[in-house]
Each structure stands twice: as C-alpha cells, then as structure tokens.
C-alpha cells in the first residue's frame, strides 16, 4: 500500500513539474517574431553605427541645439535637483570628458569649451554584461538598447557604465513640470515617443526609432554644419569612416577595452 502511495506521489510530482515547466517554455518562446514583421524599406541600416564629434566646429549654440533636439525627441524631463537628472546627451569640460589627460597649457578652446558626451555605444558594453535580465542588450548593428518593459531597476548597469551615461527614473517623469502643459496635464514635446515610467534606467539609443524610419539621429540633424558625423564604420566610404581616416580622433577611456563608438576629432 505504501508503495502505491509513493508511486502516486511520484506521478503527482512529475505532473506538477510539467505544469510549471510548460508555461515557462512558452514564455521563453514568446521571443519569436510575429510572422512577416520586417524593418521598413527606408530604414537606415548599418553593420556598426558610429559617430564622430567634430569638436572644433561646435559653438555653444550648436551644442545647445543638439541637446535640445534630443530632449524634445525623447521627452526627457528636466529636474531642478541635479541628483535626479535624466541626461542622454550633455556638456562636460575637457578634464571631465577625458579624466587623467589634462596636459598643461592646453589650447584655450580645448580647456574652455565643453564637449558633448553621450552613450558611447560600446562594442564591448559593460552595462550589457552586468544586466541580469537582458533589459539592456546590444543589437547586431552595435546599438546598445534599453527594453524599458523588462528593466527591474536594479541599477547594476549604472554601476557598470564607465562613462556615467545612464540615468535612472527616481520619480515618475510624467509628474515633472517640464513635461506638463499649463493645465498640469502630461503633454510631451514628442507625442510619437513614449515617456518612461519611474524605476527604470534609460540612456541614449542612437535614435533607433528615427533610424527605423529613415531619419538621422535628432542631435545629428540639429547640427547643420556636420559637427556630428554619423554613419556605418563598417562601410569604408561612409562619411564617418572618411572622417576618421582624415582626422586624428580620441575616445573616452579607451584603456578599459570597451571600444567606444563615439570619436572626438580634436
């Protein structure tokens, strides 16, 4: 009698295991793409997106225009308290952009003029390595993306990013005055782009949503004088490849082996 009870329990156990395994397998299988879904025909594609920042061409106004364009395109809220700031692209002084490389007697414009900094879209992104849920991941074209739906808000990526390029939503961005209209309703500058929710990490996405529609990134478009050169580094004839051949460029913290894809023409 005891043995039949035991075998019954065994069957019960196996059944219970089966019942739990199947939904998890199904959940994992959800990554299958909907049938027939594809990129748009006019989407801009590349093997490895990269950007060159032509530092000398920038003025205070063009830097501001680039930042503004990004903030608007991505509904980035403004926080009075710098502790809670959200920044995708912003200005930093030379010694903060390239710590440890402050030579004496720098040319005045280098020492004085800020640099634009943004996510470096690293070839070996430490943020992707540390993310426990693959909420941040690297696309085949090199763009390091955020999946806001999946992010649990552990902020390991912020500890991992050597460039301080990531921001956390310490509060609900929709409650911030900068994203509200006069009546206090949520009114984002770009209704086509979602806001984020509190408790997730965000960062520059190289305007993946614009590339998909055949548009250049918002900051690049805002710089009318080719201050930002964006393109495919794998394509020998792309503007950015040509720019790198023509000018000497430096990158932020290259010694870490992350292979930043933002190049600064000094």
């Amino acid at each position: 009698m005891d043995s039949t009870r035991r075998s019954f329990l065994k069957i019960l156990g196996v059944t219970a295991a089966g019942l739990t395994v199947r939904p998890s397998v199904e959940a994992l299988a959800m990554g299958v793409k909907p049938k027939g879904a594809a990129p748009f025909d006019n989407a801009l594609t590349a093997k490895r997106w990269a950007m060159a920042v032509d530092v000398g061409k920038f003025t205070g106004e063009t830097r501001k225009a680039a930042i503004e364009a990004c903030n608007k395109a991505h509904n980035i809220p403004h926080y009075e308290n710098h502790l809670h700031e959200i920044k995708w692209i912003w200005e930093e002084g030379y010694k903060h952009t390239f710590p440890g490389q402050e030579n004496e007697h720098l040319p005045a414009e280098i020492a004085r003029e800020p640099f634009l900094v943004l996510c470096n879209q690293c070839v070996n992104p430490p943020c992707v390595r540390v993310c426990p849920t693959q909420a941040t991941f690297q696309r085949p074209d090199g763009i390091v993306m955020m999946d806001y739906h999946r992010c649990i808000g552990c902020r390991f990526c912020m500890a991992g990013c050597p460039y301080g390029s990531r921001s956390f939503n310490w509060f609900d961005p929709r409650q911030q005055a900068s994203l509200k209209d006069a009546e206090g309703n949520f009114s984002p500058p770009n209704p086509e782009f979602p806001s984020r929710t509190k408790g997730v990490v965000e960062k520059c996405n190289f305007c993946a949503e614009r590339l998909a529609k055949g548009q250049m990134p918002a900051c690049v478009e805002a710089c009318k004088n080719n201050e930002l050169i964006f393109g495919d580094l794998d394509d020998h004839e792309s503007e950015v490849s040509k720019a790198l051949r023509k000018h000497f460029t430096i990158r932020r913290k290259p010694e870490l082996g992350t292979q930043p894809q933002i190049y600064y023409i000094i």
Partner: peptide, 9 residues
Amino acid sequence: LGQPSRLLN
C-alpha cells in the same frame, strides 16, 4: 529595485 513587481524577470 525600481520595479519590484518585475523581480521574477
């Protein structure tokens, strides 16, 4: 966690 409800991710 910023999104504790997603812990099981």
